[in-house]
Amino acid sequence: MSPTLAVSRPRRRILPGFGLSLGFTLVYLSLIVLIPLSAAFLRAGGLSLADFWATVTAPRVLVSYRLSFGVSLLAALVNAGFGLILAWVLVRYRFPGRRIVDALVDLPFALPTAVAGIALTAIYAPNGWLGRWLDPLWGAGVRRLAEWVPVVDWAGLLGTKLAFDRPGVFLALTFVGLPFVVRTLQPVLEELEPELEEAAATLGANRWQTMTRVVFPELRPALITGFTLAFARALGEYGSVVFIAGNQPMHSEITPLLIINKLEQYDYRGATAIAVVMLVASFVLLLLINLLQRWSRRYHRV
């Protein structure tokens, strides 16, 4: 059959509703997502390359990239470590309140980010619940570091306070990314048969060898997927960060905040240019996540 024939003649299908459901899906997807998203790229296309480049590489923007990417990476790493332990505890150990802890893990999905932001601020601000003790400690610690290793600008890198400074960005981004690693690891851990560990034990492996050589490789794909998801989420996060970051120019401004700043000054072109950079970064991450998930399933094909 020639290709044109195949296209022009609708294939008969047994179950009804294909045309209706696919048609509705495509129209709705186009109206809500594709057309508005393409607007961003089309408007950015209206900028001259020089303007675009000048906007997205302005010093204040570059600092924000470094902060956003650096802290998102750090928060995702911390979540990978603690998330692994938390998932292990939730799947393997039985203790009173386990179900509640399990349910609470999803809190960052369910709690509005603005609420999370002001709650974290209430805790870590200099007069906050924990902040009244931890904040001076952090400041003293950073000063001590600066005395020992003076070549690095520690105060610029780590901030001198917890809230209203760079550590606040880290706290907020760790909060929003917390569920991802736990939730990607949990089903894998549940399917991981204890027999695997017992087999390793009968073959003479000690517990450390079993964990590092048998269990961890099984978890690695899910761990990387969870890490990437947490990283992607942290990169775009806005609501929780603005309350706790202090938003000092050239120091603790995240990239999404700069988009808002430009919009408030009616600089739509500038906002669009930065947004396009972030969109491209997000799409690359999305692609990476899809590839990772395909890769992580490669052992499980029957």
Partner: peptide, 13 residues
């Protein structure tokens, strides 16, 4: 995959 801020921005555009 899109930052919430950008989600708002595209509708402004």
């Amino acid at each position: 995959a899109v930052s919430p801020v950008i989600s708002g921005l595209i509708y402004v555009l």
